[in-house]
Design a binder for these strands. Structure first.
Lengths: 206, 206
DNA sequence: CCAGAAAACTACATCAGGTGCAAAATTACA
DNA sequence: TGTAATTTTGCACCTGATGTAGTTTTCTGG
């Protein structure tokens, strides 16, 4: 495996990255709504029609890379260690997000703009919430599959929703109150850890 | 107060209701995307342009009434009883949603279709998540305002996000696994109550 | 009941996002 | 090099949404 990709594949990847880069630059420069798909395509030197063969919509160019992050989280739950309880899996899955968010130089260049756009453009915020929500569903399913006798699907959903819901809202509110990206991350981490410890305490009782 | 609204006002209300009713009917009959705004306007006997003076977008016709629900919840927190702690306010606010959701015959006719559409149409689900998210922000702010020395804004956000996030995901997953509306409501209620009791336990320790 | 002001409605023009389609250009491969 | 497969492109077309200007309806005071 690991075939050398042909010219076709390499060109496609280059074009896709060029579209993403051009789009982010234009969005940051003149605003998301004010930027047309034609302008993005022109900046990446392809036709407008071609843009839509790479991305189904103007929004999609922003979120193309988010799928990878979700898959990484799912993989943590899909590969449990011996003696893992559900709470352990959920803890590792959630905290893995934060550790990867800090490093990852490749993405770091995009995360800033994407974050800013999601914070300021309602339609992008809606889309981002949808992606996060579907990700939570998948995570809840995976968690239930990993520990079917410990957690029902609905219980797993309640746990996942509580942990991620708390972290997300805390991070967002903190940032929209003028916190720095580091402080925002910290608020999210504290909120998720708080929810996790509350879950741990509750699971010891029951 | 309570002036008798003039003919103008009454007509506007009737037109708006006619548009909502026509839209929901058409959406259920032939699908959301397959229904055009012109068709909705025609069914309500107004011009296409007039539709957009009542609703800013095709999506908005679905969510016109949701603002009321959010305001009701906020009012619970804005009017605390003596000796209320934050957890009491949050509990009353969240449980008030469920009690109102059961009765309320006026809305009950719309909730079914809206619920179905949100479950099946991704763009509507995104929009609904956005509205819920912004509602959570407001609720967290209100909760912090009501108990400023007990909860910081970020702590309030963590609590609100955890409770509502857990309830929402549990309800949605349960319904998309074929549960009846009653079972869905019950899953949501159990998840929120679980999160609330976990919060209560945690707040006793700290 | 009427005249004039205010508000609402309508038609029309226009633009951006998005899709289907067929021709043209590019790549792959024998 | 020639040919099949894949991409790209231009073009026609549809829907959602906005600006504008003119028409109709409602409201108010006499």
């Amino acid at each position: 495996m690991s075939e050398v990709p042909g010219l076709r594949e390499r060109k496609k990847i280059r074009t896709r990255q060029a579209l993403i880069a051009a789009a982010l630059e234009l969005f940051m420069e003149k605003g998301y709504e004010q930027t047309t798909v034609s302008e993005i395509a022109a900046a990446a030197d392809v036709s407008t029609r071609t843009f839509f063969s790479y991305f189904a919509s103007k929004e999609d160019v922003i979120f193309y890379n988010t799928r990878d992050g979700i898959d990484r989280v799912l993989r943590v739950v899909a590969e449990p260690r011996p003696d893992d309880r559900a709470i352990d899996l959920l803890t590792r899955a959630v905290t893995s997000v934060f550790s990867e968010l800090v490093l990852d130089g490749q993405l770091q260049r995009e995360i800033g703009p994407v974050n800013y756009l999601v914070m300021t453009v309602p339609s992008l915020r809606a889309r981002s919430l949808l992606l996060l929500f579907e990700g939570q569903r998948e995570l809840a399913e995976a968690l239930h599959r990993a520990c079917p006798e410990e957690l029902s699907l609905v219980e797993a959903s309640a746990a996942v929703g509580a942990v991620i819901g708390g972290g997300k809202l805390a991070a967002f509110v903190s940032m929209s109150n003028g916190a720095s990206p580091e402080e925002m991350l910290d608020a999210g981490r504290q909120a998720t850890e708080f929810a996790l410890s509350a879950l741990r305490a509750a699971s010891r009782v029951s």
